[in-house]
Design a protein around this nucleic acid. Sequence first.
DNA 1: TCCGCGCAGATCGTCAGACGATCATACTGT
DNA 2: ACAGTATGATCGTCTGACGATCTGCGCGGA
Lengths: 239, 239
Amino acid sequence: MSTPSESWNVIPPGRVAAPLRDQVLNVIRQAIMNFELKPGQRLIERELVEQLAVSRTTIREVLTVLVSDGLVTVIPQKGAIVSVITTDEARDIYEIRSSLEALAVARFTERASADEILLLRQSFHELKQATDDGESKLDLLRSKDNFYGVLLAGARFPSLTQILTMLQGRVRVLRLTSLSAPGRSKETVEEIGRIVALVEARDGNGAAEAMAAHVRNAAQAGLTKIAEREKIRLVGEES
Amino acid sequence: MSTPSESWNVIPPGRVAAPLRDQVLNVIRQAIMNFELKPGQRLIERELVEQLAVSRTTIREVLTVLVSDGLVTVIPQKGAIVSVITTDEARDIYEIRSSLEALAVARFTERASADEILLLRQSFHELKQATDDGESKLDLLRSKDNFYGVLLAGARFPSLTQILTMLQGRVRVLRLTSLSAPGRSKETVEEIGRIVALVEARDGNGAAEAMAAHVRNAAQAGLTKIAEREKIRLVGEES
DNA sequence: TCCGCGCAGATCGTCAGACGATCATACTGT
DNA sequence: ACAGTATGATCGTCTGACGATCTGCGCGGA
């Protein structure tokens, strides 16, 4: 990530090193996803240039992509911030997710191989384990992301994967708080268990309906929690 | 669109001129949508720079956005082309649209004002008129886009609007050919008429189901047509 | 004649630096 | 105390440059 001419170092022969832009993109995206960069936090081009040791050109291209993904919002003549989501937006997105994840699980049920179904159950067990062990919210979120990863991979539905990935990114704050709703984790695990069982029974419609319901419940939980504390504490906001 | 300092010309007082990037974005996006730039056609940065009289920086940012939208595909180390869609992708996207447009029309039914419903019927009439008058395919497409515009505006569902706009852009080729399927135009008009009627009756579920069916039918028609001529003639391809 | 090799051109990816425009803020004079 | 200006921070855009990669064409040898 220094000058481009020193052709860098060993890379799997035949394979190309990921373009610089993609590397930077991943770094920032992950940082946002893991809440190292918090919603509302300003993303100043100059600072990113320094911290990541790439040129402003590259940073700006990356920011453009993140804006398209909805992870970053630019305030004209002011700069970029990590997107802050409103309750309304979140509600909307959950409604969309409910539809689309139903589609995804239906397609998984049709298309996934036995191996993939096994993998799904396995990732479900990890999720359950993590919940029982009382892992941190962030770890739980990772488990759940992993579950979705398996689901989407087996669904063989790239367009849908892209959209859902984007949407999940946008509501990551809510997903975190919904997991922290007391008792909700347990319900989550139960609901997902039911979905997995229906998938194993190759009941596409049932699984789809169960998934839609699960997302609705998660939305309910998350949105309620948010409503309680009227206001999310954001970077740069004082009480 | 020459040097930025000559502050250009008269703009509605109080309003800000759209950033250069956005203007260029619209120009290229429209060109793609109207098939002035055809699927598969190369988009060479240098040429765009010359034709649009903006810097490469700006062009590259615009291309980045278009890639995120799926309208443009970049082939690494080669360049950008107007996206070419495969039959599978198209099928997938129609499946997603079927779900989401059902959602949109349901929400429109809940939320649209009487005025907006009137507007919907009006734009339906224009579509019908255009069909009866045997307007060009492109004009028909525009009519239909307009109908969707009214629908999405009244649905007050920005996230959904964004996704659907993106998806419609991606299957614009198919939408054109589906409209050109003989007799399909007539069916289209009938189906949409039914949807409008259900909306007016405030039957959200009915309208949603009708819309889902309509999209499925359109997909059917378009995909069949495509399958007939095994191969779409693309720029740069010879028979 | 035909095939392989290499070189030149085209194009991308990235960098560095520049400059005006806009917005926020701090300072200063009354 | 307050208004107005000066200053700085940051963005939006432009210019020019350079290496890396791919492509096609020409040249020399079998």
